[in-house]
């Protein structure tokens, strides 16, 4: 059941921001709707107080993927299907494409938005780990100002972000990575389609003559929210890119996740799996030329 609420679809960002500032407590932005509508159905606490849905899909500029020399921008209404089909993304951000392909089903990907995935900030948000290793930034707009913050700072805790009630995320900005980076994305779900991730990992590796120059690692689902693992990244810097370093890193990965999440009933089987897939992913990326 959808609660009693009103629906508006403003044609401009300005109008949207005005509506938000006038209805601070009660209004919520609607983009793909693939989290909000099921949320209503299960009477989720998170969506109970909404009195007005502000659909931003009629605002043309928010539907675009824009490529610049040094960066690509994803508008707030860009869907996962658009990412899957974008040559720009295939070329510069293959990890994001790979993660987008694992989201839900065709029907979900046709509606769900990348920005929505970040704003919802579920622990299992599939696009978050790739966006984190690509150092994505979030552009946020209110009537009075525009601010840009890193995705990492934007994500605060499960289902909560730095977004204020009177603000809209207008786009995600991703710098084009150094072409020397190789990387991969891994997701483990209970089944192939429409599966919530149990483990997801994104990594980017840049080597110089067999030495790790930069390693970026982000996890999803096993950590409370998608997160970069900076300690591991630092540990890897300037080490040899070989099995023994990767083994050490995998052990560290297990320790780190245990430290973040504490011991859980699932740790006993999840951690060894996590360590193993992380290790394999490192080996795989390292072999790529």
């Amino acid at each position: 059941m959808i609660p009693k609420l009103n629906y508006v679809a403003p044609l401009s960002l300005k109008r949207t921001l005005k509506i938000l500032s006038e209805n601070k407590k009660k209004a919520k932005i609607l983009a793909g709707g693939t989290d909000i509508l099921p949320g209503f159905h299960i009477n989720s606490k998170r969506f109970r107080d909404i009195e007005l849905l502000v659909d931003i899909k009629k605002i043309g500029e928010l539907k675009l993927i824009k490529e610049f020399k040094d960066r690509v921008e994803i508008g707030a209404c860009v869907t996962f299907s658009q990412i899957c089909e974008s040559d720009t993304f295939k070329k510069f951000f293959p990890l994001l494409v790979k993660s987008a392909e694992t989201v839900g089903s065709v029907q979900i990907r046709n509606r769900a938005t990348v920005v929505g995935n970040c704003v919802n900030n579920a622990p299992c948000a599939d696009s978050v780990p790739p966006l984190l290793v690509y150092d994505a930034k979030i552009e946020i707009q209110s009537l009075k100002r525009k601010r840009v913050i890193s995705l990492q700072k934007f994500l605060i805790k499960p289902y909560s972000t730095a977004l204020k009630k009177n603000e809209v995320v207008t786009k995600i900005i991703i710098p084009k990575p150094d072409p020397d980076f190789k990387g991969d994305f891994y997701k483990l779900g209970r089944r192939r389609a429409v599966a919530i991730s149990r483990i997801s990992l994104a990594l980017l590796l840049k080597k110089k003559a067999g030495i790790i120059d930069e390693l970026r690692i982000a996890s999803g689902a096993v950590t409370p929210i998608g997160a970069r693992l900076h300690e591991l990244e630092k540990f890897a810097k300037d080490k040899k890119a070989d099995s023994s370093t990767f083994k050490e890193l995998s052990i560290l990965m297990g320790k780190k996740v245990l430290q973040i999440t504490g011991l859980r009933w699932s740790s006993e089987y999840k951690l060894p799996v996590l360590q193993q897939v992380f290790y394999q992913l490192l080996e795989k990326v390292n072999e790529e030329e």
Partner: peptide
């Protein structure tokens, strides 16, 4: 809740779950 696809319809040439859309959209 978007998991079974029984409610699938086509909107602007794309398959979508009609249980996950509001009429207004």
């Amino acid at each position: 809740i978007g998991e079974c696809g029984a409610c699938t319809v086509i909107v602007n040439d794309k398959a979508v779950n009609s249980c996950l859309m509001l009429a207004g959209e």
